[in-house]
């Protein structure tokens, strides 16, 4: 086995002693985990376990009480342009008067600065991203006319335009149709094969092994984290969710 270079060996994302609270109610506490380079990682846990909160803390939207977060060995604001964050689909107003291509174009806004103009090159990126998520024919549609799955694809296309090295997705499979789920997984695996790292908040235990190779169990605090092969065990599911779900897994 050849020696890995130092950048490959050190984790892409390191969360150390993270605690977050809303109005003095702790949401998560002492959260520690690493995401290795090139992983496709699922953050798994019951509702209210602090999955989204943890992701928001990573991208510096959620103020943290304690803890350090290192991404590519730096703080978030230094490597912001190497990270793409996809919020929950339900967090925006889909009646907003913009088209699909307008939303995807927002992915290049951060690189444009204050007075930079949108150039043909940027539109080409938008079109390419739309093609990758299978939404080429919808470029000119108002976003309110889309189904939930199509909305999620648009969000993914906006992330693709950002050309990031680390993708953080909050519930990308929530409320989407089977075809969209498949399409999204394909895009994400494609990114992984290009050496990108992916972290997604995930709900469905039955698809963990098929989609992901790394897992983080969280319920207010970390239950377990590591490769799916080693850590995706009944015991850890049990600890995270309680017995009911664990017995369901047995049935599967």
């Amino acid at each position: 086995m050849t020696e890995l270079t130092s950048t490959e060996k050190s984790p892409v994302l390191r969360v150390n002693g993270l605690s977050v609270s809303y109005n003095s109610d702790p949401v998560v506490y002492s959260v520690n985990f690493d995401i290795p380079h090139g992983a496709m990682s699922a953050i798994i846990g019951p509702n209210g376990a602090g999955k989204s909160t943890t992701l928001k803390a990573v991208v510096d939207i959620q103020p943290r009480l304690t803890g350090q977060i290192e991404i590519f060995g730096q703080t978030y604001d230094k490597v912001r342009n190497r990270i793409s964050y996809v919020p929950q689909r339900a967090s925006v107003d889909w009646d907003f008067p913009v088209t699909v291509q307008d939303v995807v174009l927002m992915g290049v806004y951060p690189t444009l600065g204050l007075l930079g103009r949108v150039r043909p090159m940027h539109w080409a990126k938008v079109m390419e991203a739309l093609e990758r998520v299978g939404m080429t024919g919808f470029a000119d549609r108002q976003i309110g006319q889309l189904s939930g799955g199509q909305q999620q694809r648009v969000f993914l296309a906006r992330a693709l335009v950002q050309d990031a090295d680390l993708y953080l997705l909050d519930e990308p499979f929530a409320g989407v149709d089977a075809a969209t789920e498949k399409a999204i997984v394909k895009v994400l695996k494609d990114l992984q094969s290009k050496g990108k790292t992916i972290v997604a908040v995930h709900h469905d235990l039955t698809t963990v092994e098929a989609y992901f190779d790394h897992i983080v169990f969280i319920n207010r605090s970390i239950v377990a984290a590591g490769s799916v092969a080693r850590e995706f065990t009944e015991e850890h599911i049990n600890q995270t969710y309680g017995r009911l779900v664990a017995s369901q897994k047995q049935v599967i």
């Binding site: 928001k56 991208v59 510096d60 939207i61 604001d77 912001r80 990270i83 964050y85 996809v86 919020p87 967090s91 925006v92 107003d93 907003f96 913009v98 939303v103 927002m106 806004y109 951060p110 906006r158």
Partner: peptide
């Protein structure tokens, strides 16, 4: 436009 449509994304992008 960005903060009106998607505050969380805007914040993550450094706005």
């Amino acid at each position: 436009v960005l903060i009106s449509f998607d505050e969380t994304f805007a914040a993550s992008a450094g706005v």
